[in-house]
Write a protein that binds this DNA or RNA. Sequence first.
DNA 1: AATTGTGAAACTTTTCACAGCG
DNA 2: CGCTGTGAAAAGTTTCACAATT
Lengths: 258, 258
Amino acid sequence: MTLPPQADSSSADHPVTPAGAPGVGRVAKAIPEATVARLAVYLRVLGQLAEGGAETVSSEELAAVSGVNSAKLRKDLSHIGTHGIRGVGYDVAVLQQELERVLGQDHPQAVALVGVGNLGHALAGYGGFGGRGFPVTALFDVDPDLVGILINGIEVRHARDIPQACREAGVTIGMIATPAQAAQAVCDQLVESGVHAILNFAPAVLQVPEDVEVRKVDLAVELQVLAFHVAGRGGITDHVATPPQVVNGRNGSAVPAS
Amino acid sequence: MTLPPQADSSSADHPVTPAGAPGVGRVAKAIPEATVARLAVYLRVLGQLAEGGAETVSSEELAAVSGVNSAKLRKDLSHIGTHGIRGVGYDVAVLQQELERVLGQDHPQAVALVGVGNLGHALAGYGGFGGRGFPVTALFDVDPDLVGILINGIEVRHARDIPQACREAGVTIGMIATPAQAAQAVCDQLVESGVHAILNFAPAVLQVPEDVEVRKVDLAVELQVLAFHVAGRGGITDHVATPPQVVNGRNGSAVPAS
DNA sequence: AATTGTGAAACTTTTCACAGCG
DNA sequence: CGCTGTGAAAAGTTTCACAATT
């Protein structure tokens, strides 16, 4: 009965105002939230294709590799005023650039991470963040055993320095990997520091002003959703045992892990 | 041009067959995917409320603390045939139990984790997974430096043992925290082991048979979505006033840090 | 001939608003 | 009276299917 009410603008909420749009009389239609997340996937896949030497790609191909259907992909790309070539497909390099621009990835965003315990430490050490372009430039914690240590060459500072350090480093995105009960206070400090985008790993719903975007990664919820599916199938698994069906031909690959 | 096509049943895909439903006549209405994820949140919040000594809670209260609006919460609960008391609210303990049952949390699910590198190590070390009920009972990797070590008292085994070890341990949920290029092979092995639910942290789209549920957590995508908002907001914060109320959103549990 | 871009249809999810119950 | 449960409307998202374009 004492828990604070909370708001958040995570996952699928409000539509989104367009990015680059330089012109004047711009009222360009917003890009749907669901689309934005997929654009990021397309961008990653395009990178892989480019590495493989592809110069063009059809919506059919790109969609297949991205795990969506081609109509959806084309609709998604139509939101960014795309420049595919009918009868041919998309120029990989051009599309890549276009997506980077729209996603605001042409300028790297400085990221601050608060909470370098178990998970936070891993996140801090996870250099590059898959797609790169998101340098973690500031680390914070309150644990005296952690404050002062270096992770990936970055010193962990005390959380009380968040506002000052974030402003100095020009941080635009904050990640919260603290225990739940500390999350709101940390969030408030990040907001105070001028951060408008927060990725929250703590199992807590954050309350933020409406111009701050929060996304959350909630491992327990993910597992529970999976458990739901397991339970739902539980007694009914009898069908189609588990044939060694691997639909696509090529596959294999050694398995590095670290 | 050599990348395999992929399908994925992650986020919001097929509707879902009901859980506990013991009766004969099956076919009860499916619970919407979006709802399932929120039920997990409500369950966590109820736990906090129960700890705080609350015996009943209104949809308004529970919704506020969960970061959603009350109509949505009531609609969500209506899918599980709820038993609120008009004029009063919900009995906290009853609702908790009901949610646990529906989410299949009354029996804990054994979880296997493949890839105990940077991120995987943190996941393995995080005992309890927020909501608990998801014991990590098997760890795998291919790195000789990692195979054989103990994490939280569990020995890391070679990935080649996945099928055997998973069957022995009765694993029902697999987590993949390997590099992208290893993910599909690992996934295939998990599926072969009879695992029907997979949480994928690798930046790759997994191809699975349709009776396997995959959810993915993609940190790079999350950051890119946030970067999009940072880039887009700059000049255009044309919001629609500030409603006197909690907006909505979602939340979840995740991983503590220190 | 192949493939994009897109209106319109289908479907899903959210919100509204209120009847009905305790 | 206060609050739940829900039908119906609205909003958002996906899919279809085809005319337009290279």
